[in-house]
Design a protein around this nucleic acid. Structure first.
Lengths: 198, 198, 198, 198
DNA sequence: GATGAATGAGAGTTCATTCAT
DNA sequence: TATGAATGAACTCTCATTCAT
């Protein structure tokens, strides 16, 4: 599939360039050069810079939503669901660091703050997350004293910051890092950081 | 005073425009028009778009560092220090929502990912936060099982997400919101979200 | 060919505009308009106003150096070498009056005084000229009483002023003018203006 | 005379700045700063950048014309007149190097090529010079075989190039340099560079 | 499909000049 | 006389996008 190959090369190049420079400073010429194609071809396939960015971003959101919906539908214990969500972020960082980097540095900020679509995508994710928190409260695993959207903020904030720090440090994902991040987030989120927690 | 007044008007206009459009899409002409001054005056006082942005950002970081250092030096219980830090973010959102909005949407992301200065400022803040976590562990308030930098990520991630959501919803700060956010963050961070926590 | 043609048209337009207005007052928009191309194309090919100017200037210096080096290497009598050098300037004025005009009004002054490269290019030419004067002294044609760099200044000064006056008067080069300038420079430089000279 | 003092300080500052940067790149703010006055004052006294430059340039031309007219009116031998003219340039370089530098790098080029006034001033000087050459021919000192305007070009070209080289090398004027330049110009102009000249 | 020359609107920046004080 | 805040036209340069080949 020559077609798919070139498209894929452009996407990969775009991931790199968007990560390095950010959306605003990424130039279509850079992406074309990095992909080793003429920059007419980028337009041939993707129409515009915005569309190219959106395709990348959309694939991310769709994967995320799919995962979240799987978890919501599943009848696993809430604790496992939280584990799966954390793992999804950590694994994606491991397999597609560029994508994850773009997500934390561009998507979940600029795009969210300055476009309608960005905002609604973000809110949709929070909504899905909230459902899981609600399931947790109903199953008796999570305390009902804290509103589920607040639980969402704290849970998601923890994941995002862990990912951000790895992105900033360009740290490669390792088994150890994965395990430590997972443990820390899960432990503090469920039992708290206080020394009283057993 | 006239001098300081116009400067202040430009800064205020810049805060608005940067918040609305983001750094990349903010136009100096917009800022000048919004401030009700001529195009050239913005340059007369601030030299360039970058400098103007930096002045705004720098004032934020300096305030933040000052607060953190006060807390580190203080001999209040760690729990109070955490309260003060959370309050600092919530209060700043209340008094300077534009600044806070710029912080979460631009500074702590694009600027941090794409400039050396941005990165080092961010890391400095994390470092200060870590010191407080360490104090908390030493005083016996926080569990020593979790590394202090991990505690930092979770604590800060929670604050940032609460602020982000308020920014996105353009929610005005109220006493109630302040209290709820404070309680949720503090409660989950120290005791966890699990229903076993009392 | 289309590519080279447009480039050539831009260069020609630049030669005209730089000559008419001088480097500082030449506008890129003028050059583009004169060349009959879009604004952006000038940048597409030449990157910046400075580069565009430099390319023009560099071609001149390179031609000049090449000629000088040919003369130095040649075993013709010094008198012939001087004839060739004078002819080079006069002929270039005839075939590329814009280039020559830019040279005397911009390059050999502003550029030389205000940029490192300009200075070193000028000195390099003087150095080559000095070598020819030295050859003339060694062959017995030129008096050894006058230092070769002084001979250079007088010889070159004469040529430059003749060219300058032609540029100022926008005089087209004719055979007669060529001959008269050649004779006057050669005659005075070798035998002097005194009536005692035979 | 406070008035004259500040004016003089501005003129001096302008001489420096115009020399360092050239007319086009000299900024009024630079001149004011260098002079230690506000830049409103520069306008108060001189009206515009162009006027300021013109005043400087005009004083030069007037001194030059006055000298030339003195020489034309004098009944000294032509040789002495040539000596005086050369000395005028060398002495002015010694006493006012900035002025001389501006003259060779800006006035006798850009200004001459791009303004009507510049051109006419230059031609007037050439005209005066020609009269002296004519006197020399009539007195039998200079050969009648070479048109007086050609003699002018060669004579003036020699002086200008000597001055230019000193300006470029920022060489301070010394007695020795003065003498050598004088001798070289005079010797070659009258007797030629050929070894046959006695 | 594929190229890259060509376009031009748009943005940042400069700086001579004005004018209220 | 003296200041420097204020103005805005003018200019360079960028880069997403189009289109002929």
């Amino acid at each position: 599939m020559a077609r798919n190959m070139k498209q894929a090369m452009i996407i990969d190049a775009a991931l790199e360039v968007f990560r390095e420079k950010g959306y605003a400073n990424a130039r279509m010429a850079d992406i074309a050069r990095r992909a080793g194609v003429s920059y007419g071809l980028v337009y041939h396939y993707f129409g515009s810079k915005e569309v190219l960015f959106d395709i990348i971003v959309e694939s991310w959101w769709n994967d995320l939503y799919a995962m979240m919906e799987r978890e919501i539908a599943s009848d696993a214990p809430t604790r496992d669901k939280l584990v799966h969500i954390i793992a999804f972020f950590l694994d994606t960082y491991g397999s597609k660091p560029n994508l994850m980097s773009i997500f934390v540095s561009e998507v979940c900020r600029s795009s969210v703050y300055h476009t309608k679509e960005g905002l609604s995508r973000f809110l949709k994710f929070f909504n899905l997350c909230e459902q899981i928190m609600l399931q947790g409260q109903e199953s008796g695993f999570l305390s009902k004293e804290i509103p589920p959207h607040h639980l969402t903020y704290i849970f998601y904030g923890a994941i995002e910051t862990f990912i951000s720090v790895m992105v900033l440090g360009k740290e490669p994902m390792t088994k150890k890092r994965h395990e430590r991040a997972m443990n820390a987030i899960l432990r503090v989120f469920t039992d708290g950081a206080s020394s009283r927690a057993h």
